[in-house]
Write a protein that binds this DNA or RNA. Structure first.
Length: 136
RNA sequence: CGAGUCGGUCAGACGAUCGCUUCGCCCCGGCCUUGGCUGCGGCGGGGAGGAAAGUCCGGGCUCCAUAGGGCAGGGUGCCAGGUAACGCCUGGGGGGCGCGAGCCUACGGAAAGUGCAACAGAAAGGAUACCGCCUGGCCGCUCACGCGGUCCGGUAAGGGUGAAAUGGUGCGGUAAGAGCGCACCGCGCGGCUGGCAACAGGCGCGGCGAUGGUAAACCCCACUCGGAGCAAGACCAAAUAGGAAUCCAUACGCUGCGGCCCGCAGUGGAUUCGGGUAGGUCGCUACAGGCAGGCGGCGACGCCUGUCGCAGAUGAAUGGUCGUCCACGACAGAACCCGGCUUAUCGACCGACUCACUUC
RNA sequence: CGGGGCGUAGCGCAGUCUGGUAGCGCACCACACUGGGGGUGUGGUGGUCGUAGGUUCAAAUCCUGCCGUCCCGA
């Protein structure tokens, strides 16, 4: 994995352009989610955007993860997974919600779950995209 | 060497690689009139804690008047000092614990007033005679000593109740007893000596039926506290515009202002309908600052000199992966800042000291 | 981040200001009425008063520290 990582900085960056920044951005995804990937510890919602790349928003509620250290850890791992994920169209805005008990997982477990859910989500979005095109 | 006390320091390390954020410099581009704003990239520097936590105190800062007077209300509570301030810290005193080094301590006033004390007990606050004990009178029994009953008194030594019963111990004294008398201790009062003081020591006096407990009960005394909080507050764009209805009012009103009155400043206000916002910039980190040395002080700390620049995010940065090593890594993440307190916590190391044992 | 409230029986609540006995409703158990159930009646079981200290003779109650939970403020 990272042992074979190459310095393609453009693909592996994670700046402000790759994040959901305002409450309006979040509301757009929540109100019009086109695809979702659900797991015991995590839920992803996605909606296609008109940006030149994916964007990520994180919701890790204090109610579900009590300690600030654990909340930070979950968010960091999620960003790291997102950063290393394939950046291929269709581009989408994704909101990741953490569920109760996610702080019990260690880094390796959590990373693999996140990657799996991300692939699932990407597949569903492209399916929705093609069926939508067919429908038209 | 074992057991222990006190104070302090650290918070996995190193390397590779991919990222995030901020600052500086440079290159290119855009806006723009001589300089600034902004975008991409490169190089270099900085990037969580001892508790960042709980929000229990104290300040700074901002707005309300420059935070002013009184009432009400809150806080603190042995003494002296430190400090911007404190409920913190230091030193000292009293009390308690420990063989000791040391540790703990809401520790002002109950002879200003009010209140409270269930149950038990004779009596629970300026109270009391239930059982006892004792003198005497009368009655009964008895030869008598005496015993029993009853009555008027005396008595707080003994029993019993209670969390608590009106100083304690001893000797004398007495009908039995009692601070009734004496000694010591305790308590109170008045000088004296030492100490800034809290307080300590010693002397004299008082016989102690006066002055019990509770103030984390009301309260009294002393000192102290105005209110809100960075979602404070300021600015930019937009907006509150403009509007409709009802009610109150033309000032002893209403608002700023959290309880009231005064005072100050400002001025029409309340409710409903309708309509609209929740973007950005600043505040935002350089100070009661860290480190080193010197001087003053028992110490907390203060003064002087030199030196360092040490997070500033805003869906919210300090991380991922791999390798090596070891004691295999606890509690845990800044959100305006600082001083404390409290709570959580794997361990490692340093210094001072105490006790016990052994050896020289 | 800041500002508040609440923890008492299985559940919902009183009692806390003013300290001594923890009480009410539902539920539960037993018995009676009934052929049985339901219902009604009578009696009863059940509480470390969130937790750890302190004050007091005595604490659910007063004071302090923790824990949990809920609400409010853009």
């Amino acid at each position: 994995m990272s042992g074979t990582a190459q310095p393609r900085s453009s693909q592996y960056s994670f700046g402000k352009a790759s994040r959901l920044l305002t409450a309006r951005d979040y509301s757009r995804v929540f109100d019009g989610a086109e695809a979702r990937a659900s797991h015991k510890h995590v839920l992803l919602l996605a909606k296609q955007n008109d940006q030149p790349g994916h964007r990520l928003g994180l919701v890790v509620a204090k109610k579900n993860v009590r300690l600030a250290v654990q909340r930070n850890r979950v968010k960091r791992l999620a960003r790291e997974m997102f950063r290393q994920a394939d950046a291929e169209p269709p581009f989408m805005d994704v909101v990741l919600l953490a569920r109760r008990g996610i702080d019990q997982l260690d880094n390796a477990e959590l990373s693999s779950i996140l990657r799996g859910q991300w692939r699932k989500l990407a597949r569903r979005v492209s399916e929705a995209d093609t069926s939508e095109s067919r429908g038209r």
